[in-house]
């Protein structure tokens, strides 16, 4: 018996999810809500991303903690599950056991689009101060607070930016919420006490 379900309205739910993803990646740090999807072990937003973007031409890699979703993903998205991280177009992992960004497909200098997207599940997302984002898609700076992500992530992100135009794009998900970190975005930690003068 197959667990979980797909989009209730495959055409229009996929379109709405895509527009939300287009929005969060073109305006980094904004948070969108995706349709509620019931998939074994995957948070709802990660499942919606899988349904929206993966298929037989876009293979996925699943962290062992999401192994229960493999059958669901094959059935509802038709996506091949790969075991080699570098072969994956989409990598699904929880922040606690996330792979290094450099371990994913980076694209090459002439074709930087041949790179992976990391779907990283975290504890919570909000626009409270935490990280201060800047770069294309942001008018000035934008605050993003990410709960449950390791401290090394920022150093890893710094290295990812240094590889531009190669590099990985990240979608952060918490429950049914999603925020985007395209490879262009700069992240600075906001120090305590500074939050009062945050700009938007």
């Amino acid at each position: 018996m197959l667990e979980g379900s797909g989009f209730e309205d495959p055409v229009h739910d996929a379109q709405r999810s895509f527009r939300a993803l287009l929005n969060v990646l073109s305006e980094p740090g904004t948070i969108a809500t995706l349709p509620q999807i019931d998939a074994p072990s995957l948070p709802a937003a990660a499942a919606a991303i899988a349904l929206t973007l993966t298929d037989r031409d876009a293979p996925a890699w699943l962290d062992p903690s999401f192994a229960a979703a493999a059958q669901w993903l094959r059935f509802f998205a038709g996506a091949p599950i790969v075991t080699d991280l570098r072969e994956a177009s989409f990598v699904f992992a929880p922040a606690a056991s996330r792979p290094q960004l450099a371990a994913l497909a980076q694209g090459d200098p002439a074709y930087p689009d041949r790179s992976a997207t990391l779907v990283l599940t975290v504890a919570a997302l909000s626009n409270d101060p935490g990280w201060r984002l800047s770069g294309p898609g942001i008018n000035g700076t934008r605050d993003l607070s990410v709960k449950g992500i390791d401290l090394d992530f920022l150093a890893d992100w710094h290295d990812n930016r240094a590889r531009f135009p190669r590099g990985v794009d990240v979608l952060l998900v918490a429950g049914d919420r999603v925020a985007g970190l395209p490879r262009t975005v700069q992240i600075e930690p906001v120090h305590i006490g500074e939050s009062a003068c945050m700009s938007r």
């Binding site: 379109q15 895509f18 990646l25 073109s26 929206t52 298929d55 031409d57 177009s89 794009d169 262009t184």
Partner: peptide
């Protein structure tokens, strides 16, 4: 559409 959408997301990221 999915193929196009994946390309569009890469396009905004680069």
């Amino acid at each position: 559409k999915r193929m196009l959408r994946r390309s569009l997301l890469k396009a905004v990221a680069i």
